[in-house]
Simulated scan of single mutants.
Amino acid sequence: MDVSLSIVTCGPQLEVALSGPQLNSTSVIRLCGVARRSSLLMGAVDLLVEDAGIPRAEISKIVVSRGPGSFTGIRSGLATAGGLTAALGCRVLAYNSLLVQAARAGGSGEVWAAQPGRRGEVYARAFALGGVAVPEPATELEILPLSNLAERGPWVAAEALSLGEARRMAPIRSAAEALIWLADTGLASEPLEPLYVEGPPVG
């Protein structure tokens, strides 16, 4: 079976999705509480697999976000993806979390993607949208204070991430679904390594 599992842990919410042509639809779990990601992640994976009525061994591809974002979240997601890949013998792909946020947007034009940084700041980058094409970076990565975000936009970010007065774009898919979408385009994987900016951010 061609079944994809995606894992998003480097932001303020945990997202896990399971998708495949044999399944009725893509199933997504999103948790926005305060519990440690590492204690919930495998439970979410098992719940999706059980709900789909398939064994874990049917998972053929795992896609994970590698940062930037929460230091502990990045480590948790990559470690879980690596462990599952070793146990199941499946493929694993990793993508920049800002690209993942941009891939949530639809249409054309420019969108700014944000991930949580240090207190009062976000990691940000603008992307050019091309409809069904993978978003292309339009600027370098920046570290911006929340007070400056309203000067740019529109923005796409995790719903649980506060952007102050900045204007948000309504996404067409979740971050977990965006990871699977990026993998399905054939986009080459980035290294399965944490992507930190200016050392481990607070998180």
Rank of each mutant, 00 (worst) to 15 (best):
S162I: 00
G164T: 06
G117C: 07
L163C: 06
L84N: 10
S27V: 02
A150W: 01
V64H: 02
R168T: 13
A35S: 03
V111T: 11
D184L: 09
R118D: 14
S76M: 03
R91C: 06
T139L: 04
G117K: 08
R168S: 14
I143A: 09
E121G: 02
A113E: 12
Y95W: 08
E50C: 01
S189Q: 03
G186V: 06
P154Y: 11
S162Y: 07
P171L: 12
L18W: 00
T26G: 02
I172V: 14
L47H: 14
E159K: 10
E121P: 01
I62Q: 09
R168A: 13
L149C: 01
R104E: 12
V111N: 14
F127M: 10
L182M: 09
G109T: 03
K61H: 15
K61C: 15
T85W: 09
G186Q: 07
F71N: 06
G120H: 12
S60K: 08
T185L: 00
N24F: 00
A158I: 00
A102L: 13
Y95C: 04
L23V: 03
G153C: 01
E198H: 14
A44F: 09
S4K: 00
T80I: 10
V156I: 13
P68G: 05
Q101N: 14
G20K: 07
S97W: 03
G186D: 11
V197H: 06
S19K: 13
L14I: 08
A128R: 13
A114H: 09
S147G: 05
A44M: 10
N96V: 10
V156Q: 06
G67Y: 08
A113T: 11
G20H: 07
F127L: 08
A158D: 15
F127E: 06
S174W: 02
Y95R: 12
G77H: 04
P154I: 01
A57K: 12
Y123A: 15
V197R: 11
P135K: 04
G69D: 06
V63T: 15
T80P: 03
L161D: 07
M169E: 15
E190M: 05
A183E: 14
D184K: 09
G107T: 11
R173Q: 13
A183K: 01
R36W: 00
R56V: 02
R66H: 11
I62L: 11
S25W: 04
A103R: 10
G164M: 07
V156F: 07
A175Q: 10
G106P: 06
A35C: 00
L129T: 01
S38E: 12
G53T: 14
S4T: 15
S65K: 07
A57S: 15
V122K: 05
P135W: 09
P201S: 12
G164R: 11
C90R: 02
P68D: 13
A57I: 07
P137A: 03
T185N: 06
V8A: 11
A103K: 01
S39W: 00
E136Y: 00
E121A: 06
V45M: 12
M42H: 02
L99D: 13
S38P: 00
L78C: 09
G120I: 13
S25R: 13
E190R: 05
L195A: 13
L98F: 06
P116E: 09
R104N: 03
S189P: 02
L163Q: 02
L182G: 08
L40H: 02
G77D: 04
P171N: 12
L47R: 15
A79C: 12
A158V: 00
T80A: 15
L141H: 03
